[in-house]
């Protein structure tokens, strides 16, 4: 009360800043440039960028859940694996292979809708491990499918009907398209009325419920988006790896990667996971052949960031300099009274 009184003039509420308009502009330009990637990138870079796009999807989806929904899941590999599995299933049922890769995440999204009624009643750590149990169960059930042949696995043979170069380009475009779609969906979700609700829930669920935010419906929307998104990442990963082994796809390692990317980039910031995905991509490119040390390093980095840099790299930069490239929130600018300067 005193704080507001001491401000001179009414606070100004803004959403767009010149910087964010410029950022969106250059982003659109970058996307246009990337769209023609296969024409000039060469086969190695095209493949690597496809992987990067998949990482961006994974990080953004995990961030939507944890950073905006307040839901830490250790079981997103359930959807990752199911996306790949369904793509295989559809393809073997005679569906065009690229159509199968697109349909699989949609079906997983639909499937996650009833699942959310169950999962979202778990709170905190119970949700985290509860999702892990669901992932384990999905893994075991997929193993029961005769087509998969248990842990032996199976390959997406239909995709080899395409010439390697054509396949590489198609995978690239599919990944770029899905990444753009999912990130843009996330962007508009967070900008909408629902987005305001989401951030209210993250800040204080009980208080949000008491002012009439439909907590459950909002969380469900995020849950389904994240499920479909992780399934898309799984089906895209299948398109590049071709072979499907349940153990690989349902591994908790994928969640470890998502956690790393999101924490390092900035949990609860829109841009953070993208930054985190790029960093993870670079780290992986440089250190993946160090094997176990690489994994120890990832875990240790995640641990250190969670304790000492909770806002991640992007969150810290954005807090320090007041930069927000993707305007998902509103900006409230007022002069902080000088005698209250100690309180951030």
């Amino acid at each position: 009360m005193k704080g507001a009184k001491d401000c001179e003039g009414a606070p100004a509420v803004r959403r767009w800043s010149p910087l964010s308009i410029a950022a969106i502009g250059s982003l659109v330009a970058l996307l246009a440039l990337l769209a023609f990637g296969p024409a000039y990138l060469g086969s190695y870079l095209t493949d690597r960028l496809t992987t990067l796009f998949i990482y961006v999807i994974m990080a953004s989806m995990w961030n939507a859940l944890a950073g905006y929904g307040g839901l830490v899941s250790v079981g997103q590999q359930a959807f990752f694996g199911l996306g790949a599995y369904l793509a295989i299933r559809l393809s073997y049922a005679g569906v065009n292979v690229y159509l199968a890769l697109v349909l699989a995440p949609l079906i997983v999204g639909l499937f996650s809708l009833p699942l959310s009624s169950f999962a979202l009643r778990l709170r905190g750590g119970e949700f985290a491990i509860g999702m892990w149990v669901l992932a384990e169960l999905a893994h075991l059930l997929v193993n029961l499918d005769g087509l998969v042949q248990g842990e032996t696995g199976i390959s997406l043979i239909a995709i080899s009907a395409f010439a390697p170069d054509a396949r590489r380009s198609y995978n690239y475009w599919l990944a770029l398209g899905m990444m753009t779609l999912l990130v843009v969906l996330g962007f508009f979700l967070l900008r909408s009325r629902t987005g305001a609700a989401i951030q209210a829930i993250r800040d204080n669920e009980d208080a949000a419920a008491s002012v009439g935010v439909r907590v459950f419906a909002t969380k469900r929307l995020i849950f389904v988006l994240a499920a479909a998104g992780c399934a898309a990442a799984g089906s895209l990963m299948l398109s590049t790896l071709v072979s499907f082994q349940p153990k690989t796809y349902f591994s908790v390692q994928w969640t470890a990667y998502m956690l790393f990317m999101t924490l390092v980039g900035g949990l609860g910031t829109f841009e953070g996971p993208i930054v985190g995905a790029v960093l993870f991509f670079l780290v992986e490119t440089m250190f993946a052949d160090t094997g176990v040390w690489y994994l120890i390093g990832l875990g240790a980095t995640a641990l250190i960031f969670s304790l000492f840099v909770p806002r991640g790299i992007w969150g810290t930069i954005s807090d320090r300099f007041g930069i927000q490239l993707m305007p998902v929130g509103y900006r409230l600018r007022f002069r902080v009274p000088s005698n209250a300067g100690a309180t951030p």
Binding site: K2, G3, V336, P337, A340
Partner: peptide, 8 residues
């Protein structure tokens, strides 16, 4: 003593 910006 304060509660956030509020001087209590």
């Amino acid at each position: 003593a304060r509660h956030g910006l509020l001087q209590a």
